[in-house]
Design a protein around this nucleic acid. Structure first.
Length: 552
RNA sequence: GGGCCCGUGGCCUAGUCUGGAUAAGGCACCGUCCUUCUAAGUCGGUGAUCGUGGGUCCGAAUCCCACCGGGCCCGCCA
């Protein structure tokens, strides 16, 4: 929960005392430059047969004396409110003085699980999967900022056909006791070729699955070994992006602890059978839980996983590729309707990332790995920072380049609306100008540079703000609304877009409002503005995983 | 064939849920500004039938219907 002086809400509630039929949506942020908030009175005028003057005078009667409103105007069917920048500034400062953050957070006791990444451990993580990780990690950070107790979760699929194929490929083609993730990927690719050709390897894969579920020690040891090698590589890659997952659940553990068996018992009434394979009907479809040889399928394992999570959390959020939409709706049906789970369950879907040459495939080796993107991003930012700041020591240059690279990658992938398909282009991913992470970071560094030169400077709310100051303050004031909207829609990309918006406003301020050489009163209020801006940037940047630097 | 998602200047996007005032940015291109605080920046310019056609409405990028184009799903795969 967020705490701050909510003037928007005050206006809505005041207008509703006169016109109860007015909805929150009727009082909106103005995007046309006329004012701050606008009341669209068209419906009220029509329904009540009132003139715009009548509505205007009623609104003025209720709100005209409010200390936070600078002016109220009537234009056509709009009633326009311009707020007092000084009151907005004060509202921000009040929060920051107490808690060093705006808005203040009220700790919510709810426990939330955010499952993300959960990619099959069959090869290094690529830039398509990373969309899942970046969305999930940012969402977890957003929830944490909001005050929830968040745990991120990774469901390791070690029991399916793909990992069994990986293991079979390893045994047959990789002659190393100490293979790397890339060695294993090679074996997997070769195995895929054979499996598609229909060789006896298919039978071996079936046997691996049976042995694994039965608990054959040698198979367990072997599969866990190859999966762990790949997981370590995935985690190392994710770590470079500042992503750490709290909990890992192995699918096979759910089988061996008997969770799957218990689910089959709980679902007994709904269970149907076809040639020994068990299934249930969900939304008119046969959803198979087990194969005819009794081994489990992804669907039943995922149900077990969700039940496990329901036991430990008040709210489950899964970040899934759009191809899981159907699967998700069946999971929801089984857990909520058939198994009566009451806690909240939400899914966040994202569209796939493809290359200009077509779709990515780990099996076919048509991927750009995160490691490759990361290295090239560092290379690119190092080149830029070297030319911009040749006087800095090598160590600092490297440090800056790494932070820019992580931020640029995360920002580039996150800022796009998650249900839009994304075609990855190097030129766009490595662009460090315009609507990018360095654009935000650079502005922040300039703000910090000013502050370094004004160490110990007094700050004050002040008055007589000019246009750029007012616009920046207004944008800062809106931050809590952005967080709320972002959380409501489970859309962390809103925060990324807000960062761009806020940065543009700051840049306007920066190029029009001198600080160091300003008169005392101007200087004091501008110092407060810059400090507030820096606090909000750090806060929002942390949510989307941008690494803010004091100097770059 | 059925279902879900996407379509906004040459290219990439914001805005769509909750309809509202000249459709907001970036890339590329042309021009401007480093003797005011970091030029990864600023300012100006060129460039948009908001996929198409209907409908609802005082008002549609936004809602409804149809169609077109792209993605995804419709496995005893995951």
């Amino acid at each position: 929960m967020l705490l701050f002086d909510d003037y928007w809400k005050k206006i809505i509630e005041s207008i509703q005392t006169a016109y109860p039929e007015v909805t929150e949506g009727d009082i909106a942020l103005d995007r046309s430059g006329h004012c701050d908030l606008t009341f669209r009175a068209f419906q009220v005028m029509k329904k009540r047969g009132l003139s715009s003057e009548a509505v205007y005078s009623k609104v003025t009667e209720i709100l005209g004396a409010s200390d936070f409103i600078e002016k109220i105007e009537s234009v056509g069917g709009y009633v326009n409110f311009t707020l007092m920048p000084s009151k907005l500034m004060e509202a921000i400062w009040k929060e920051m003085e107490g808690t060093n953050q705006y808005p203040d957070t009220f700790q919510d006791p709810e426990r939330v699980s955010v499952e993300h990444t959960s990619t099959n451990p069959t090869g290094p993580i690529h830039i398509g999967r990373i969309r899942n990780s970046i969305i999930g990690d940012s969402l977890a950070r957003l929830l944490a900022r909001y005050g929830y107790r968040v745990t991120t979760q990774y469901f390791i699929n070690d029991s399916g056909r793909q990992v069994a194929s990986l293991y079979a490929g390893y045994r047959k083609f990789v002659k190393s006791d100490n293979p790397s993730a890339y060695d294993l990927l090679e074996g997997y690719k070769q195995a895929t070729v054979e499996l598609e050709a229909g060789t006896e390897l298919n039978g071996e894969v079936d046997q691996v699955i049976r042995d694994y579920e039965k608990g054959d020690p040698e198979t367990i040891e072997g599969i866990r070994k190859v999966c762990s090698i790949i997981l370590d590589s995935i985690n190392a890659s994710l770590f470079n992006l500042g992503i750490k997952i709290d909990d890992y659940t192995w699918e096979s553990d759910l089988i061996r602890t008997g969770d799957i068996g218990r689910i089959m018992e709980d679902l007994e009434e709904d269970l149907l059978e076809e040639a020994g394979a068990k299934y249930i009907m969900s939304n008119g479809r046969k959803m198979f839980l087990t194969r005819k040889d009794g081994t489990s399928l992804y669907f039943s394992r995922d149900i077990a996983y969700h039940l496990y999570k329901f036991q430990n959390f008040d709210w489950l959020i899964d970040v899934l590729g759009e191809n899981h939409k159907e699967h998700a709706s069946h999971i929801e049906y089984v857990t909520k309707t058939l198994l009566n789970q009451e806690h909240r369950l939400d899914f966040v879907f994202y569209s796939y990332v493809s290359l200009e040459t077509g779709k990515m495939s780990t099996r076919k080796g048509q991927i750009i790995t995160l490691d490759e993107l990361y290295e090239r991003a560092i290379e690119e930012s190092l080149k830029v920072v070297k030319s911009k700041r040749p006087e800095l020591p090598e160590e600092s240059l490297k440090e800056i380049a790494m932070n820019v690279a992580v931020s640029a990658i995360r920002f580039h992938i996150l800022k796009l609306n998650s249900n839009k398909p994304m075609v990855f282009k190097w030129s766009e991913a490595l662009n460090l100008e315009g609507d990018s992470a360095p654009f935000v970071m650079y502005s922040y560094a300039r703000a910090s540079s000013i502050m370094r030169k004004l160490e110990g400077q007094n700050q004050a709310v002040g008055k007589n703000y000019n246009k750029e100051e007012g616009a920046l303050i207004r944008q800062m004031y809106l931050y809590p609304y952005v967080l709320t909207e972002s959380l409501r829609g489970l859309k962390p990309e809103n925060v990324a877009n807000y960062l761009l918006e806020l940065t543009r406003k700051f840049n306007d301020f920066y190029s029009n409002c001198p600080v160091i050489n300003a008169l005392q009163e101007e200087k004091e209020r501008r110092v407060l503005i810059i400090n507030s801006y820096r606090t909000i940037i750090r806060d929002a940047a942390n949510i989307v995983g941008l690494k803010i630097l004091e100097e770059m």
